[in-house]
Design a binder for these strands. Sequence first.
DNA 1: TCTCGGAATGTTAGCGCTACCATCGCCGAT
DNA 2: ATCGGCGATGGTAGCGCTAACATTCCGAGA
Lengths: 336, 336
Amino acid sequence: MQSDLTVAADDAARLVPTLSAVAKRAGVSPITASRVVRTPERVAPATRIRVEQAMRDLGYVPNLVAGALASARTNSVGVLVPTIANSVFADTVQGLSDKLEPLGFSVILAQSGYDPAREERMLAALLSRRPEAIIMVGSPATEGGRRLLRRARIPVVETWELPEHPIDAVAGFNNCEAGVTVAKHLIAQGRQRLAFIGGDDPRATRRWSGFRDEIRAHGLPEPRRLILPHDATSGVMAHASLPGVDAVFAASDAHAIGFMAGLRTAGLLRSGPAHEQPVAVIGLGDLEMGRLISPSLSTIGVHGREIGGTAATLTLERDGERCVDIGFELLLRESG
Amino acid sequence: MQSDLTVAADDAARLVPTLSAVAKRAGVSPITASRVVRTPERVAPATRIRVEQAMRDLGYVPNLVAGALASARTNSVGVLVPTIANSVFADTVQGLSDKLEPLGFSVILAQSGYDPAREERMLAALLSRRPEAIIMVGSPATEGGRRLLRRARIPVVETWELPEHPIDAVAGFNNCEAGVTVAKHLIAQGRQRLAFIGGDDPRATRRWSGFRDEIRAHGLPEPRRLILPHDATSGVMAHASLPGVDAVFAASDAHAIGFMAGLRTAGLLRSGPAHEQPVAVIGLGDLEMGRLISPSLSTIGVHGREIGGTAATLTLERDGERCVDIGFELLLRESG
DNA sequence: TCTCGGAATGTTAGCGCTACCATCGCCGAT
DNA sequence: ATCGGCGATGGTAGCGCTAACATTCCGAGA
């Protein structure tokens, strides 16, 4: 009796009410209150209504961390991106989150900042929250990261790439092939002195290698590669470092738009069609902005949101094809 | 004894090891193993090394959901944005996440999609994970949402606005004043027929009302307001709906850039300075792209990342000023 | 020699919830 | 009337960890 009173006092004094407090108020056992939240159809309507009223009275908000511990289901998904400020990744996060949120999953977001050590730390941090799946852009940069993911024994979706030996599932496209496609197009257009600008992350590097190899295969002069920080403004000055170049493949639309700003200043940009451009420019990402500027930006379109949506599906359905090539498309507009 | 054996067998068979398994392997009690993780300085070096080795051997990853339940600290922060695909909000998320991640906090991300009902659902979903603070863009659109936040008794930071009656803390700027500033500038430039384009969310509406009131105060013709979906492309056709207008304030840079694309098509865009533009355009957000296009976009710069960083600080420090005005600046370039 | 204090470690008792099984009526079929 | 079966509800135990309080041991100081 004493202890009962104590518990009652505790419950009343609590800032946030528990399931037991709700149950007590409704005159049922805690497990019945739990069922009202999780499987209402298994509770008699009269009881249900009484419990629901008690919940409203107390302003009950379920404690999912307790629920997760008890049920071994956290209903959360860990998402690791290089940076959320890059809108192509933001699109991917939106795509997956739009699919997962309605199902009651929460997104735990982490950023690696393109830094392998930080990536591994963030993977460990994510896994310590026991997400039911991990979705990441790219593949783990470190062996430690791979090991963590394998040992976690949960679905892992690598995106934006098509790794040869995926940890589990993949939703991406062939970055190397994208580089090849751009090179082929520029060469067919009669461009001779090609260059590549962009970051030095694994995906950009794959695009570069496809691009370079295709150019070599055509016997054209070795292309230059200019490594830039991950912001558009860095592209503005790139032109000065690439004298004589008549076509550029930028690893991202942001870099492409920055580069075009530099060309404009140098008087090397026309508002006409691609063949009139002194320097052709192809981006990657199909940013909305690229369509709106003049000259409009030719680009490799990559369906960031669909990558996210597909990744979400892959975390939910454990059978079926585990490696989805979302593909890409060459979108030709005025810049190249 | 029997039960001991059973436990040992369980631990060995487990997919993911627990603290007890680590402790057993190191020959210490679970609490000592826990201390090695949380307060290593309180454990004798020899013991610590033994436990650390056991952790490495087993590939132990702490279970923060159990830890959170036991300690009543989740080390997580809930973040609610209208959409992560809008890069100004992505900047804010990056700003806060860069500050919180090094401190061991995880970011739980939710999107409201500008929908009050969804916002309230997502707030409840966030709170059920017992975050130690909530950071959101704007204020709750529903009374239910406000009540949830107040009852949660955790720090709540509203951002991108300066509400009169904040729930707790604020990191934002005066949207209304931004509209006034733009109106003043355009009027001083001699513009007469002004219009506003953008969404109808609370922040855009505040910008509009400041803009409109200032125009009225000058006795100029009543400005038009065109409500658009939240994407840049919707701005392209806006010009057709605003005949005779000689200046436009767009609630976001994306809309501004879309609108400029429409002007360009209509032959109403010059590459020269502001006073040569048949239609002046001012955006809001200071997107990197706005600086790179031609004519470069005049805009209200709003420091999205700093808003996030300040919001993070406000969640961590519960004393001191709880209402921070980050301010904004009028950045004049070529478009207006 | 004895005490005292502090460092190192252990014991106990939950955190709030759910899995699992048990119980209790009550129905229709036999 | 008996019984299986089913719907509604409850009891028990525990998820993996940590707070709060023991306990042990050792050396310094009286």
